[in-house]
């Protein structure tokens, strides 16, 4: 059976909505399917990302939550065999439309990765790179202002203010991850995607990053993939539970963790599988 036939015959999955949709929708996704070659990784995901709130994506490994996240700024484009169907809108604009410039999109939807990946440049240049290539700074002092304010927002400035011109790779893991967050916010995005940002960090660094996420919520819409349900409960306002490429349940974080509607959600958050 070909992929297309499978698509037609398959029953459409209905996501359980526990609670109302977010009031202000930043990103609106409908029927998102992702294929890696002939293999389908995501099935009809309908999910709305609220403005200025943290949406956590949870689920067991291989459930498609990272794949979904990478659809939101078209990072999947870099994988040759990957194909995305469905509708993904940022502020009502289809981001997969031919008129959309992917470079511009990624400036609006920033990303922080699982492993801290600072550039092999100085701390200053790491943060300044984005503003430079997007022409955000009119002058040298403008650029310095952007770098300093981004580092301050990322809660890193006090730790590195005296060594801005030393390599970013010389920082500790937690500092590197916050540097990556500073780098992402330096281009002034609207949405920040975080792919398990704390999985390579120790608990203290994790706590700092979580604190930072909570602060960033004031200005940005954040989508975070996490394996830690405690983390999801701590930092997010909405939680989406993925299982086997299906968005099983989505709703208020408090409600999801206290009163999940779907049996599988309940099993997962109580630790019965995954």
């Amino acid at each position: 059976m070909s992929v297309a036939e499978a698509e037609k015959t398959r029953e459409r999955w209905q996501t359980v909505m526990s609670g109302p949709a977010p009031e202000h929708i930043k990103m609106h996704t409908r029927d998102v399917c992702v294929f890696y070659g002939a293999k389908q990784a995501l099935f009809d995901v309908d999910l709305d990302i609220g403005e200025r709130e943290v949406t956590a994506l949870i689920g067991p490994s291989g459930c498609g939550k990272s794949t979904y996240l990478r659809c939101l700024n078209r990072m999947n484009d870099t994988i040759d065999i990957c194909r995305v169907t469905g509708k993904i809108e940022l502020e009502g604009e289809d981001i997969y439309a031919p008129s959309i410039d992917v470079v511009e999109l990624r400036a609006r939807v920033g990303m922080v990765f699982q492993k801290p990946n600072p550039f092999a440049k100085s701390i200053f240049d790491n943060v300044a790179y984005g503003p430079r290539i997007h022409g955000l700074a009119g002058s040298k002092s403008d650029l310095e202002d952007i770098v300093v304010s981004s580092l301050k927002k990322a809660g890193l400035y006090n730790e590195v203010s005296d060594r801005l011109h030393e390599p970013g790779t010389g920082l500790s893991g937690g500092q590197q991850q916050r540097l990556c967050i500073a780098r992402a916010i330096a281009v002034n995005p609207e949405v920040i995607l975080m792919d398990e940002p704390c999985s390579a960090l120790d608990p203290i660094a994790t706590a700092k990053v979580e604190e930072l996420i909570d602060e960033l919520r004031e200005n940005y819409s954040i989508v975070i993939v996490t394996h830690s349900m405690q983390q999801a409960a701590r930092v997010s306002q909405r939680t989406a539970f993925f299982h086997l490429g299906i968005l099983v349940e989505v709703g208020d974080t408090d409600r999801m963790f206290t009163n999940p509607q779907d049996q599988r959600t309940q099993d997962y958050i109580t630790g019965r599988f995954g």
């Binding site: 999109l105 990624r106 400036a107 920033g110 990765f113 492993k115 990946n117 550039f119 290539i133 281009v187």
Partner: peptide, 23 residues
């Protein structure tokens, strides 16, 4: 060169060529 460097550059909106030539 680790792929994470390419992803980092692409993730903040560098074009493919910028990612390659700058990083």
């Amino acid at each position: 060169v680790p792929p994470s460097i390419r992803e980092a550059a692409l993730g903040i909106g560098a074009s493919k060529m910028q990612a390659i030539f700058h990083h």
